[in-house]
Structures are given as structure tokens and as C-alpha cells.
Write a protein that binds this DNA or RNA. Structure first.
Lengths: 145, 145
DNA sequence: CTTGTTGCAAATATTTTGCACCCAT
DNA sequence: ATGGGTGCAAAATATTTGCAACAAG
């Protein structure tokens, strides 16, 4: 479906900033983007947009269910397309690469852990920090870390 | 052991701000404190201390292994005593209460997940968001949320 | 037309840093 | 006495908000 119609179906006016931001995430080039990344990426390609608008649109998209916000330990929030399927993240502490993974068993144990304490689970954040083995990772193969 | 000696053993001068902050965490009244909480708590009890110093001391204590930093999804970092034993957190989304828990099985599955992808695990963050059933929780028993 | 949206600048919130003075060792 | 530690104020960083101009429906 074209981006224009996706927005209209959600009751959002199809404005230029919204279209460009949605297309950026749907292009799939970079799945995890912070507000600043979105702003820079669009500005570079000649799209004139305000940083405040980026923040506003990202928040709207999150509420509309198009995007999901993630808070990794680096101080800035990143957004990714909400595929509907839940997944957690593995983050390389050396190069910042993000990998996604799903683990039914972990999910099940989390639910059990909350229920055992009479809580009702509402959501969760699981981020594994690790060293990756990508060829361009600055500390690849460095067993010392 | 008295706080003064704990600090000296770590090569830290036993200054007033450091002692007061260490004692606050060791009093155990509140396990999870943000910089602002520490500042307010000490100021109220008549301890004259600068907020910048609180931030500096918390960072030093973290590096020294006395404290551990946690980033929940509320934008501010909280610190807790580093007991040596790893644990994860359950956070009530209604009243902010924090509960700690350990789950060997989840830990084991996390390690397996990263190893399966040829990463080397360095650390992780797991925070379960839930509704608690404490008598003073503002939305206790509210099944709608 | 009308209401929601945008860009800009100013405001917030959290944390860090420069610097002159102070104090634990 | 001296080098690290502190308080204050200013800077840095991330995000939000007020407001007048603007544009989608």
C-alpha cells in the first residue's frame, strides 16, 4: 500500500514530513533510527524539515502503532517499524550494530516470573550487550574485552 | 566495615559527600535512587552538597564497583548497591515500585541466544513492566489496564 | 474555510564540565 | 603542602512546547 493511504487510514493527514519519515523507515535501509538520525538523513537528501517535527511525528507514529520506541543504554531513543511480531535486541558494544531475535522460551519464563509475584505483565525490555564478529567491527576478535 | 574504610580500600578519599552518599545507599531505606533523589534526600537532612558532586560520586562509585547503574524507561538513571549477585527488575507502571528477581533459566537462555549468533555476551538489561497489587498502588485491581 | 500541522525559538530535563577554592592525607 | 575533591555556574545533550504562519481536506 502507498504511504499516503497508510496515513489516511490511521486518520493522519498525509503531510510531507510524515510521508518522508514513513518512507525512510519503510525503505528498510536502517531499521533502528533515533530522531537525530531521521532529521539528518532527510536533511541530507534535500528534505527541509524541523527537528521538532521529527520528534512530534515519531511520537504520533508510535501511538498509531506504526513505530516502536526502544531505549538502549546510550541515552537516546531509537524507533523501528512495528512489525506486530515482538522481538528483543542484541547490541554490539563495540560497533553499535543491532541484531533482533525472538525466543519463545524466554518470553514464557518472563510471564511466569511476573505471575508468580501476582503482577500482571504489561511489557518488557530485554537488550543483550555483546561483542559481535562483523568484519568491520573495530574490536573484532579482541578476546581481551 | 565502616564507610570510611570502605572508601579508603578503594583508593577514594573519605570526603563528606562520598560518606553521606554511601551511607544513604547502605541504609537500605530506598534501594533504587536517581541522582536527583540522592541530592534531595541529603539536602533535606541538612547535608549541604552540590548536585554536580552527586553525579560525580555516583559515577565514581559505579566504576569502583560499589554501585550499579540501571536505565529504566523513564529517562533518568537510577543506582543501586552492587551486591555482586546479578538480578533483573520488575517495575510497576502504575506506582513505580521496583521489585528484583533472579531467574537462572532466563540467564542461561540469554547466553545461548548470543552464542548461537557467535557473539560474546558482555551484559544485559531486562526490565519487566507490570501492574502490581500493593495496597497503596493507585490503580490496584484495575483490570482495564 | 477550518482545524490540524509545521518551523522556529525558547523552555525543560538530565547530565557533564570549567574553574577557583578547599580539605583529606 | 599538594593534589584530588567540591560547589557553582555554564555548557552539553535530548526532548518538549508556545506560537504564528501554513496547508490538507
Amino acid at each position: 500500500m502507498q504511504s499516503v493511504y497508510k496515513l489516511k487510514l490511521l486518520g493522519l493527514k498525509a503531510t510531507m514530513p510524515r510521508l518522508k519519515i514513513l518512507e525512510l523507515f519503510e525503505s528498510g535501509e536502517e531499521r533502528h533510527l533515533a530522531a537525530e538520525d531521521v532529521y539528518r538523513s532527510l536533511t541530507i537528501t534535500g528534505v527541509d524539515i524541523g527537528l521538532a517535527t521529527v520528534y512530534r511525528v515519531l511520537t504520533q507514529f508510535e501511538h498509531a502503532g506504526i513505530l516502536q520506541r526502544q531505549n538502549f543504554d546510550n541515552g537516546k531513543a531509537v524507533y523501528e517499524i512495528n512489525s506486530g511480531e515482538h522481538h528483543d535486541h542484541i547490541l554490539c558494544v563495540d560497533c553499535g550494530a543491532v541484531e533482533e531475535f525472538q525466543d519463545e522460551e524466554i518470553e514464557r519464563l518472563q510471564l511466569a516470573a511476573v505471575q508468580r509475584r501476582s503482577f500482571r505483565l504489561s511489557g518488557h525490555t530485554l537488550c543483550l550487550y555483546a561483542h559481535c564478529e562483523k568484519t568491520d567491527c573495530p574490536r573484532r576478535g579482541d578476546k581481551a574485552c
